[in-house]
């Protein structure tokens, strides 16, 4: 297995280089260093000298990808692309275009993101699996039919509606929790409750339907029939046989998103004023801070690759028949 993981890590290197190149190209097709400078320097009295100085201080005065004025390797290394990208591979994110240490900001902002995403994931799993088991248990009854109809309706509604509706009902009408904001320690609970609830309700339709399908598939397998033939109670059949076997695809689906929990949610964090990495990324895109954007895209790619490797590993743990070669 170690060989397999090492091989996957080596495979990840060209992927990460590719992601870096694509991010770089996309960003600089839309923005030139001059435009970035103007965005950062404001709108009044921006002189050409100020723009040149801003670019020079941040290394944006070099050629983008090929420096014809430099010697040998310098043609490639003395460029914006090389200087801005190479340090990422050792997780040195450097400074943002407005002078902040990106690594420090990420270390500070990942906790609020986790405060939302971890409870959302755990409570969500509990709720979705419970509902899916109920629907599977009452398959082809009015409970199942209406459950699926409600799930489809809930899937069809935009997540924005849940956010705004949740804020309106829970915070504005019922006055149960603050409408937005964040605080540290136990004070965070009252701010996290609503985004978690909204996230949970927003995904309940699609997740319940998916899990229900998995459980129904399991329920029609021979080992379930055998279990029932043995005279086991429905409860035992459901929890000991159906749930345990159905958890394999669920587990692998969950493991892949585990690393991504750090990245947070772009929309939720923005609406609930949660100072996490999702809002950090959105702000960076809006303010054209290339240093932060490339760091977050790179971090997202690395975490996604880690998620995929963990998924493969989790297969072997969940299903002993699978071996990683």
């Amino acid at each position: 297995m170690i060989n397999y993981i090492l091989r996957r890590i080596i495979y990840a290197i060209p992927i990460l280089i590719g992601v870096n190149i694509i991010t770089f190209v996309l960003f600089f097709v839309v923005n030139t260093p001059d435009e970035m400078a103007r965005m950062h320097l404001g709108q009044k009295h921006v002189t050409l000298e100020a723009i040149d100085k801003w670019k020079s201080e941040r290394g944006y005065d070099k050629p983008v990808v090929w420096n014809t004025a430099a010697d040998s390797m310098g043609k490639f290394t003395d460029t914006i692309f090389f200087n801005k990208s190479i340090r990422l591979f050792v997780f040195d994110f450097g400074q943002s275009d407005n002078g902040r240490d990106i690594g420090y900001d990420i270390s500070q902002r990942m906790w609020p993101s986790l405060a939302i995403t971890v409870p959302s994931l755990l409570l969500g799993l509990l709720a979705y699996i419970s509902f899916a088991l109920i629907l599977a248990f009452f398959r082809a009854t009015y409970i199942d039919i209406w459950g699926v109809v409600i799930c489809v309706i809930m899937m069809s509604i935009s997540s924005m509606f849940y956010i705004i509706g949740g804020q309106f009902v829970i915070s504005k009408l019922l006055h149960l929790v603050p409408i937005s904001g964040y605080d540290s320690g136990f004070e965070a609970i009252k701010f996290v409750a609503l985004p978690v609830l909204v996230g949970l309700i927003g995904s309940i339709g699609s997740s319940t339907r998916w899990y229900r399908t998995i459980f129904l598939e399991e329920m029609h397998k021979d080992f379930v029939r055998t279990a029932r033939a043995k005279g086991l109670s429905e409860k035992v059949v459901l929890f000991r046989h159906v749930l345990r076997n159905g958890l394999i695809p669920i587990l692998t689906g969950v493991v892949v998103v585990l690393p991504m929990l750090f990245i947070g949610s772009l929309i939720t964090e923005s609406f609930f004023a949660i100072p996490g990495l999702g809002s950090y990324t959105i702000n960076a895109i809006q303010s054209q801070d290339f240093s932060i954007v490339r760091s977050m895209v790179y971090l997202g790619s690395v975490l996604y690759i880690i998620g995929l490797i963990l998924t493969d590993v989790s297969y072997t743990i969940a299903d002993p028949r699978i071996r990683l070669e």
């Binding site: 937005s180 923005s270 609406f271 809002s279």
Partner: peptide, 18 residues
């Protein structure tokens, strides 16, 4: 001074006296 990116939460918090 609290960060409020969206108008709706800021407006509702004003109406709630916050």
């Amino acid at each position: 001074y609290s960060l409020e990116v969206e108008n709706i939460p800021a407006w509702n918090k004003f109406l709630q006296g916050y």
